[in-house]
Amino acid sequence: MANIATREAYGAALAELGEKYQDVVVLDADLSKSTKTSEFKKKFPNRFFNIGISEQDLMGTAAGLATCGKIPFASTFAMFATGRAFEQIRNSIAYPNLNVKIAASHAGITLGEDGASHQAIEDIALMRAVPNMTIVNPADALSTKKAVEAAILHKGPMYIRLGRLGVPEVYKEDMDFRIGKGILLEEGKDVTIIACGFMVHIALEASSMLKEEGISAEVIDMHTIKPLDEEIIINSARKTHAVVTAEEHNIIGGLGGAVAEVLCENYPVPMVRVGIKDVFGQSGKPLELVELYGISAKDVAAAAKKAIAKK
């Protein structure tokens, strides 16, 4: 099976679910071919609004549509959604708790060649700090489709983080996607690897590498970063006593920060965060950047060993 990017799964899911959910409308800011909302546009042209290259207006228009009972999906790149339009998301969407889904693609360094100006590595941190916001970062095509339907059914603002790069399937059969419920992908006893989005399949790869060295890793897909599934984190930490987080995001303020907050307050164990180490990215082939910025499976496996050594 060819790798599918979560943005592609998003566009396909919108186009498919648009029939069942007539209140869904989709807005884009001149990136519909990249965010794949163009798939929805093809099927439901009257429910698709291109707002042009104006992300602040994109968010505000979505907010207005939501006040009239529509379920707007507002899409652009993660950089422009959470960066350019941060305050519109904060004041026009989150503060009035409006039912807008901000589905942002091209998050993280695996955006690749376009470089640092387009590589959002701080979007999760920005969205986490906003009250009323739910944050979801699906790992593969199937979980993205499930996330889109969960977003439609969820009342309130949601940030859905999507990637440009094709990713292998994590879920081959049906899966139960519930907002706020992490998924235990592999059970282990020596270390827990908690990952989100693009890093979930990397975490599974790291787990295989560790297995060869006789280390048993527990792998959790933390597709919802807010509200965070504290129970699955604490339960796993009780079992393994060492935790690694893996995210395609700055190690400040993202999944690693969120998990650290839960562990510090509830069950402190040695912990290592894998992510972008508070630096900007650069142009390059996505997988070369993954190596260069230290978020490859090899890096996650090394972090796991480091966490275990700190026990």
Partner: peptide, 13 residues
Amino acid sequence: GQGLSASNGMALA
């Protein structure tokens, strides 16, 4: 600066 965008959304709806 934000109210006109929201009004547009209401008018579009």
